[in-house]
Amino acid sequence: MKWGMVIDLQKCTGCGECAAACKLENNVAIVAHKESEMGRTMLWMDMLTIYEGEYPRLRVRQIPRPCMHCDHPPCTKVCPVRATYINEEGIVAQIYPQCIGCRYCMAACPYTVKSFNWYKPSFPPGMARTTNPDVSVRPVGVVEKCTFCIHRLQIAREQAKSEARDLRENDYQPACGASCPTGAIVFGDLENANHQVNRLAHNPRATKLLEDLGTEPKVIYLKEVD
């Protein structure tokens, strides 16, 4: 079993809903304007914008960018305390209590998907109520990133177990995929021939970001053709 994601850029309209859903689902801290000015905005799902050509042939590519969950992740290799590691299902995970905040992994990640918690989580009175109770809030001084919404996998597994059945394809979908209005984000088991991602990963339009680095990302993009 190897969890992976396919993002079809021909379907994506760049609405940004994946980024919003991700922030709320995972209680990603909102750092407010002064900290944002210092480049400390935290987005597990970011939106890359690439300009190609010049007007009148200008094309703007918008690329949603989660953690690539590489098969050869550069981040895990540099972690001195094994706070980040790749599990047997291919998810690059993070153990927050183990993280010492050295940020080597942030420097090593070529996709710049990791963010550092510069601040103690604080909420104006009342605002704490908007957090998702399924995901813990990270303490100050640790690195965090997209987890493929692994908590959803745990919930889905428990549900399947209680119903004495195997996990079905749609049981486990990360928040970005589940919230994408155009269905551009597809998630599933890359090794399961019955899963849609498996088929899409072999599409001729399939490509990976910075493939030549040999990181073997498990987020696969389908190129826009027009």
Binding site: G16, L24, I30, A32, H33, T41, M47
Partner: peptide, 17 residues
């Protein structure tokens, strides 16, 4: 709403401004 401030200029990478 802070979430919307933080995502205000998502495509331009301009937040809270």
């Amino acid at each position: 709403q802070p979430l919307l401030q933080e995502m205000f200029g998502l495509h331009s990478r301009q937040y809270w401004k």
